[in-house]
Design a protein around this nucleic acid. Structure first.
Length: 487
RNA sequence: GGCGGUAUCGUCUAGGGGACUAGGACGGAGCCCUCUCAAGGCUCAAACACGGGUUCGAAUCCCGUUACCGCUACCA
């Protein structure tokens, strides 16, 4: 069956030399969105030609990062290193067809020339001396076993393309040096490997970071030399740190896994990243991956680098947190609870209804999954640590606090039903009788129950905690206050 | 240095010649709600880098300047 429409094929091609960086993740995301939006293919290629720096662990981290973000890829993963033969064949073809030549200059000679040019404040460009060697001399040197690289012979003219994000970009070929395509050890240089693989993978649009703009004319030249029409190119802006420089380790967390461990939701991460360099237009901000696919368009891509703002990420996470149901959050919260030894998975599933209710109660004031775990501590039976500031503020007058707690406990314990309306009536009338604001009762009680000055509404806390634990917490608090007074 | 790219509130952005008194969001300040904190609602402060054109009219188009970023390897 003949298919007359061209299926868009894009790829994400990281080198496995670290972890999945947020910048890489965003590039992957844009490619993925484009592929999903246009019923195309999103391919993954691991650029492991630099064997010294590539690791398997890093490859795994890339897979895991993409999976966590929800970015699935089509077809088998391509490992660039597996295509060595084709890369060499392509280099050979370029050489044979006169688009390249052997260069016998050593790294040291080149470095010396570069330094000299720099000392003269001149731009260094390879002077093509080996391109001028006659055939006999080349043959002699090859026969002598002299090592050589293959350089691409850059033709005269101008190399230009219509970038899908920047519009027309042109480079005078005179500014492009005869770059190396094959090392003296026979392995390919990045630009050759990329072009060879992109041709083989039938990539229709190369969407990558801005930092590749100056590689693009070289790659276009290579496509032509290899007898292929170049694909479309789109260069998305970089992500910068707060200092306006390329985001790097010194800016703090840059691996997507770091954010995963900080309790950031994948949906929030992906949403936040998408908005760094892309906008659906208008005021739309909080979106699911699905919605982004719907809304995605190359037109919405920004040209300007964006600064990574962790504050907004947190806010975004809070938005996604409140979007998710307790049931959806459960698998994310449970490991944290278990790790904190607050409960076992079994216990949680036994009290699932209560547990889900607790998540609903806490998620609204949480910005990360970890916040939920932290806030959940008092609701399980373990020991409570009282926040020193809370103690200082709400139990400052120890006798008064002790007394308020005792009175509150008495009223609460006397309740026939452990039910919000009755608790509120009981505690408010206690405050009335004492001629104090309700807060004078609620606040010390909040510290007794949760150890903190902030929590959900006090009756929600009492309810979630249950009668036994609530009363126990009050007793523990009274004991703590007495002990503090005695010492 | 050379080449390339970019320029709207502190940050992410909307805007595509008249709808701009430049909109939204984060962050900030304040108010409301209220038992605390969030959430939510409301209000405020906050930007078209600069200079020239083009045009009746420019944040929007053109040129220059400046600033910033990237590349400038037998790294990717």
């Amino acid at each position: 069956m003949a298919d007359t429409t061209i299926t868009p094929r894009v790829r994400f091609a990281p080198s496995p030399t670290g972890y999945l960086h947020v910048g890489g993740a965003r590039t992957a995301l844009f490619n993925w969105l484009y592929a999903r939006k246009h019923d195309g293919k999103f391919l993954l290629r691991i650029e492991d030609t630099d064997k010294a720096r590539s690791t398997e662990e890093s490859t795994r981290a890339i897979f895991e990062g993409l999976e966590w973000l929800g970015l699935d890829w089509d077809e088998d993963v391509v490992f660039q290193g597996a295509n060595l033969q084709r890369h060499q064949d392509d280099a050979r073809r370029i050489l044979d067809e006169g688009h390249g030549y052997r260069c016998f200059c050593t790294t040291e000679e080149l470095a010396a020339q570069r330094d000299a040019a720099k000392a003269r404040h001149e731009a260094f460009k390879y002077d093509r001396r080996c391109a001028r060697l006659d055939a006999g001399e080349v043959a002699r040197r090859v026969a002598d076993g002299m090592p050589y690289v293959i350089r691409f012979r850059v033709p005269d003219g101008t190399t230009a393309w219509d970038d899908v994000v920047h519009g027309p970009i042109a480079f005078p070929n005179a500014d492009i040096e005869d770059f190396v395509i094959l090392r003296s050890d026979g392995t390919p240089i990045y630009n050759l490997a990329v072009v060879s693989d992109d041709i083989a993978m039938r990539i229709t649009l190369v969407m990558r970071g801005d930092d590749h703009i100056s590689n693009t004319p070289k790659q276009i030249l290579l496509y032509r030399a290899l007898g292929h029409e170049p694909p479309a190119f789109g260069h998305v802006p970089m992500i910068h740190g707060p200092d306006g420089k390329k985001l790097s380790k010194r800016h703090g967390a840059t691996a997507v896994a770091d954010y995963q461990h900080e309790g950031i939701l994948p949906g929030a991460m992906v949403n936040f990243l998408a908005l760094l360099g892309w906008s659906p237009g208008g005021d739309r901000e909080v979106m699911t991956l699905r919605e982004m696919v719907e809304l995605f368009s190359l037109d919405g891509l920004q040209k300007k680098a964006a600064i990574f703002d962790p504050k907004k990420l947190e806010w975004m996470n809070g938005q996604h947190l409140s979007l998710l149901t307790a049931a959806a959050l459960e698998p994310l919260v449970t490991p944290g609870l278990v790790a904190a030894k607050l409960a076992t998975t079994e216990e949680l599933s036994r009290r699932r209804e209560w547990y889900l209710g607790l998540i609903d109660l806490l998620k609204v004031r949480a910005r990360t999954v970890h916040d939920i775990v932290r806030q959940a501590v008092p609701y399980f039976g373990g020991d409570l640590t009282y926040d020193p500031d809370a103690v200082a503020k709400q139990w400052k007058d120890r006798p008064a606090a002790h007394d308020a707690l005792s009175a509150a406990r008495e009223r609460l314990a006397a309740l026939p039903q452990w039910e919000a309306e009755a608790m509120e009536a009981a505690l408010r009338s206690l405050a009335d009788e004492r001629g104090v604001a309700a807060g004078k009762i609620f606040q010390p009680l909040r510290v007794a129950l949760t150890g903190m000055t902030v929590s959900p509404g006090i009756f929600d806390v009492l309810l979630a905690m249950g009668r036994d634990l609530s009363l126990r917490r009050i007793d523990e608090a009274r004991q703590f206050i007495s002990d503090a007074g005695a010492s």
